[in-house]
């Protein structure tokens, strides 16, 4: 399914755990250190470096671009480290998240309550994913190096819906489908 960002409510409504999507549009990167700063800025009542309403965050810190490249390897990092921060960002209007690995119960509930979505990108294929990234711009926290917030323009970025707004969870469903009792071999 081809989808564009920012994500429209009617698109989120249709997405189901296990759907393969191809994303085109603008997404923003943020890892733990950037999340910490975003939350601290919210605590101080400051405006965030970009309007997160309707946006998608990609949990990723790239390797440096070689001369002539847009970006280096650019695969997802483990999303669980963002769990402590995500519910507040979702409540503030964040609609999409993308990384790898399972989310906490609190995040899954926030996804359901606020009609958001969590995608997985394939971990460990950063050289392949880099091809879908067409333009990169530093938005904030440049001092964090690989952990700075980047604005990415992506075309046909391959991802899979893990947690949908209806409470579906691909990690649970996929595991249940292929699990077997080794004693019955």
């Amino acid at each position: 399914m081809d989808i564009t960002t920012p994500l429209e409510p009617q698109v989120i409504e249709k997405l189901r755990a296990g759907d393969q999507v191809s994303i085109t549009g603008v997404i923003y990167t943020a890892r733990d250190a950037a999340h910490k700063r975003l939350i601290e800025a919210m605590d101080r009542g400051e405006e965030l470096p970009f309007d997160i309403r309707g946006q998608t965050l990609y949990y990723m810190g790239p390797s440096p671009a070689k001369p002539g490249q847009v970006i280096g390897a650019a695969g997802p990092t483990t999303s669980g480290r963002m769990d402590a921060y995500s519910p507040r960002l979702i409540a503030a209007g964040l609609k999409g998240m993308m990384g790898k690995g399972s989310r906490s119960q609190e995040v899954k509930e926030a996804i359901k309550k606020h009609k958001a979505v969590y995608f997985a990108a394939t971990g460990g294929v950063g050289a392949l994913i880099a091809r879908a990234i067409k333009k990169v711009e530093v938005v904030a926290y440049e001092d964090l190096g690989a952990e700075a917030i980047l604005r990415l323009e992506v075309e046909n970025f391959p991802a899979i819906v893990v947690n949908d707004a209806q409470g579906g969870d691909l990690y649970e469903e996929g595991k249940a489908k292929y699990r077997r009792n080794p004693e019955t071999r």
Binding site: G18, Q20, M60, G61, P62, S63, K66, Q69, G72, A73, A74, G75, T77, T122, G123, G124, V125, G126, A127, L128, A130, R131, A146, P158, I160, G174, K177, Y178
Partner: peptide
């Protein structure tokens, strides 16, 4: 057996080919 699983394995092999040919890190986490 999983079609999605086979697709992931295909991506991993394709990634290895790109990384080797273009001298790009296999993974951004070096």
């Amino acid at each position: 057996e999983s079609p999605l699983g086979r697709q992931v394995l295909e991506q991993i092999l394709e990634n290895a080919r790109i990384a080797k040919e273009e001298k790009i890190p296999l993974c951004q986490d070096c």
